[in-house]
């Protein structure tokens, strides 16, 4: 009995991390209709940056994250402005291919610079248990991941739903030509959108780096996690990523409990396929247009 409760708690906590892994991908899809194949690699790039700054240069994780976010914002602005925006009017496929190229470049650059070894970002909390009774334990690292993940999603929702900046982003997503004629620079809005998404991915990159080991080719693994979250929660629905993340976490941990840890990953994706079959728009998505 306690073991099930333990699985549920860990599943939910893991779900908060999954939500922040997926939310940037959901945003980019919701606003630009672009499936950002480089999402996972951008996240791992941020893990490397944060590791480098934290361990070699500034010695402080928060400052390292801040510098990483600034660098990642510049990089994503450049990617959108000089690569994706050049082809975005030619339909969805060219942008997809551009992001595929970005993904390959990041992965190979990481191998060249950092080598193929496993890395991790030291985390004092990862070995601390917040709750440590004989039956149930709650890992401090997982709890922090959950809180930060939920907070990032909520802040992003606030920016999109409640600010004038978010209003221009939603207008662009609703009717790009109409917004353009009103004087909204929609390609610039797309660049800001990718920046927002990559900022969330950078935070996810730190959390992943502190929780698991990573290496240059880990990106696609998290791309698939993000995909699962977004498909379950609903493509483009930001609040849905919270639900999608937590459901994915629960399904993984419970299937590990009932069928053995080997089933964890498979069960997550079987669940994703089931959702795709019975509710293709995802649990949270309203019927679009």
């Amino acid at each position: 009995m306690y073991i099930i409760i333990q699985s549920v708690i860990t599943g939910i906590l893991l779900g908060g991390l999954y939500a922040v892994i997926g939310v940037g991908m959901s945003l980019v899809f919701g606003i630009m209709r672009l499936t950002n194949i480089a999402h996972g690699d951008l996240m791992i790039l941020a893990s490397y940056f944060t590791m480098l700054f934290a361990m070699e240069i500034v010695g402080n994780v928060f400052l390292a994250l801040l510098i990483t976010i600034v660098l990642m914002l510049i990089l994503s602005f450049l990617i959108q402005t000089f690569l994706v925006n050049r082809v975005i009017d030619k339909g969805p496929e060219p942008s997809l291919l551009v992001m595929f190229g970005v993904s390959i470049i990041i992965r190979n650059a990481l191998i060249l610079i950092f080598g193929a070894n496993n890395r991790t970002i030291p985390n004092p909390l990862s070995t601390t248990n917040i709750l440590n009774s004989p039956n149930i334990s709650i890992s401090g690292g997982y709890l922090v991941n959950f809180i930060v993940g939920v907070a990032v999603v909520l802040v992003l929702m606030f920016i999109i739903q409640k600010t004038y900046f978010g209003m221009s982003i939603r207008a662009t997503a609703s009717n790009r030509m109409g917004a353009e004629l009103l004087g909204v620079n929609t390609k610039r809005i797309f660049a800001y959108t990718l920046c927002l998404a990559v900022a969330t991915a950078s935070i996810a990159g730190l959390l992943i780096g502190q929780t698991f080991v990573f290496y240059p080719s880990t990106g696609p693994q998290y791309l698939i996690t993000a995909f699962g979250v977004v498909v379950i929660g609903g493509m483009g629905s930001l609040g849905g990523t919270l639900v999608g993340g937590i459901l994915l976490g629960l399904v993984q941990l419970l299937s590990a409990h009932f069928f053995g840890t080997g089933w964890q990953t498979i069960a997550g994706y079987v669940f994703m396929l089931v959702i795709l079959t019975i509710r293709p728009q995802g649990i949270f998505a309203k019927a679009r247009r």
Binding site: S168, S174, L182
Partner: peptide
């Protein structure tokens, strides 16, 4: 084709902020 994900008020706001500066 109004901006469907914006309220009526926000729709008009977009016109004022971006279109009329």
């Amino acid at each position: 084709r109004p901006f469907e994900k914006l309220t009526a008020y926000e729709n008009v706001m977009v016109g004022g902020i971006f279109g009329d500066g």
